[in-house]
Amino acid sequence: MPENKKKSKVNALAVAVTALALALGGCSADSTSPAAAREKAASEGKPLSLSATHTDCTRAKCIALTFDAGPGEDTPRLLDTLKEKKVHATFFLLGRNHVLKHPGLVRRIAAEGHEVANHTWSHRRLDELGTEDIREELSRTQDAIAKITGHRPTLMRPPQGRINEDVTRVSRELGLAQILWSATAKDYSTTDSALIEKRILDQAGRDGIILLHDIYEGTVPAVPAIIDELKRRGYTFVTVPELLAPGKAEPGEVYRP
């Protein structure tokens, strides 16, 4: 086979592998795992404060349930399920057409003990934007959430998990840690709740961060069975900050199991 054809095949394979990795777990940038965050804090003598979390994830089998791109019409039913199951989740909220459209839901998410986080204003890929546009995407959502809840988020999730040096720089400036994930159901591509459940259960692991969306038809109906089965397997559900405790999500840093 000619050398140039070999190189083309190698390059095509590399692109495919990269695309698959991004689809499964977000950007491949250097990141800190929850275990590493906890170990670093412990080495610095930071105690675990049970006023901040009721679970010691150095001992318990913890997992974090997160929802992107809401709130939406199905979010009240999801919140009812989480309340019934006594599970706290982390919600990465979209500003335009979501936070602004559903301020009462944003208040309810915060009031019921869930972590309120930033998923940009309009879901544009941040790695394709200039610094000022990145800042606008994140800061407008920060401001909108703060106006409703009285608190500015400390966590963000970049759309598609795509980040670069500019995204990191602006995130640090705005006091936002970047949170990726380890399990995704690709629930944007199916309405099959049983399939969504299976995909998450197949990928679940200790210190995992589950990515779901509370805006797609099949997702919220899948959540009760996901919670029940993972509890049966011995998992304790925590928010992302609880997963890192006694570590603290540092602005600009990338966290991924």
Rank of each mutant, 00 (worst) to 15 (best):
H213S: 14
I226R: 09
Q203L: 06
D187R: 02
S189E: 13
Q203M: 08
Y216G: 04
S171P: 12
D127Y: 05
L180A: 02
A194S: 15
Y235W: 11
D202Q: 12
D228R: 15
D207N: 15
F237Q: 04
L244E: 03
E242T: 08
I209F: 06
P246E: 10
D214Q: 07
T219Q: 00
N164P: 03
E165P: 00
A245P: 08
I227V: 13
D214Y: 07
R172M: 07
L212S: 12
Y235K: 10
E128G: 01
D133L: 14
K186F: 14
L212I: 12
I226T: 11
N164W: 02
L138A: 07
T236A: 11
R152C: 09
R232D: 14
L176F: 05
S182M: 01
Q142W: 03
E229C: 01
D133Y: 12
D166Y: 00
L243A: 03
A225Y: 02
D207E: 10
A194R: 15
G175F: 08
D207H: 12
T219D: 00
S193D: 11
S139N: 14
T190C: 11
A144L: 03
A245E: 10
R199V: 06
M156P: 00
I215E: 00
A194I: 07
S193Q: 11
G130Y: 05
